[in-house]
Design a protein around this nucleic acid. Structure first.
Lengths: 127, 127
DNA sequence: ATATAATGCAGCCATTTGGCTGCGCAACTT
DNA sequence: AAGTTGCGCAGCCAAATGGCTGCATTATAT
């Protein structure tokens, strides 16, 4: 939707993918899980799935375009591996929400605390 | 893609959404950011965007279907707020990858070796 | 009681997505 | 030199996505 485009002569070329859109697909998350342990070739990765090699290759391309995978050529083989810092982007986005599931002080946590602990002098500000 | 469907008489109704697919859309992430501070009504949320109220309502529905938002009715108004524990699902998925950007990172190969190390409990080796 | 406000739902539409196949090309094997 | 293997790209297609508009419904307000 909100992708960046770059005009190159007569054609329009997409240059950047969104990390969140990339990890939205379960197959791509599975690929990330596979490659997390060791770098793998597209062929080897595709062997783990029922989809065609080209389909998996497309997923790899998307992961590579958004920089979640880095490649390393060796002859005619290309080894793909996870790009750690890019994964951190998701963690960074998630960080501000951490307090929402780690214990107290959000609206819901406030409610729960009130239910569990009758002594709490809560000045809840729901709504 | 891999969504669950439930047959209900003549129509096919989707019953469950994926959290990752839900946060893939930038508008929905913005909604989450809005609602993180306080519960809000769909109308108030929609005021923050250029899209139509119904379009935002659709996004809210998706977030609610995957349980990222919880609702609380008050008269004809409905207050939506973030569901913390559901957000944790993303954090849980991300956790195994944390070592990829944390720790002492010398080279990518070292990181991979480290992950292997965690499995085999043996000596650390490069790539 | 009547009007207005707050929502959700259904339907329409253009674009994107994710699958497949066919193909071309470079790099190993024989 | 000729064949095989690994890989990416282009093109096709059905399904999903995200936007819009037009209702229907249920509370409030007048």
């Amino acid at each position: 939707m909100a992708a960046l485009y770059l005009q190159s002569n007569s054609c329009t070329m997409e240059i950047r993918r969104d990390v969140f859109q990339a990890i939205a697909d379960p197959t791509r998350r599975a690929i990330l899980a596979l490659v997390a342990f060791q770098s793998m070739t597209p062929g080897a990765i595709a062997d783990s799935f029922d989809s065609s090699r080209q389909t998996i290759s497309k997923h790899i391309r998307i992961l590579h375009e958004c920089d979640l995978l880095s490649q390393q050529q060796s002859g005619r083989e290309i080894y793909y591996q996870i790009n750690g810092p890019k994964m951190k982007e998701v963690a960074t986005w998630l960080e501000p929400y951490r307090r929402l599931w780690e214990d107290r002080l959000d609206a819901m946590g406030d409610l729960l605390a009130e239910m569990k602990d009758a002594k709490t002098r809560s000045k809840r500000k729901i709504q």
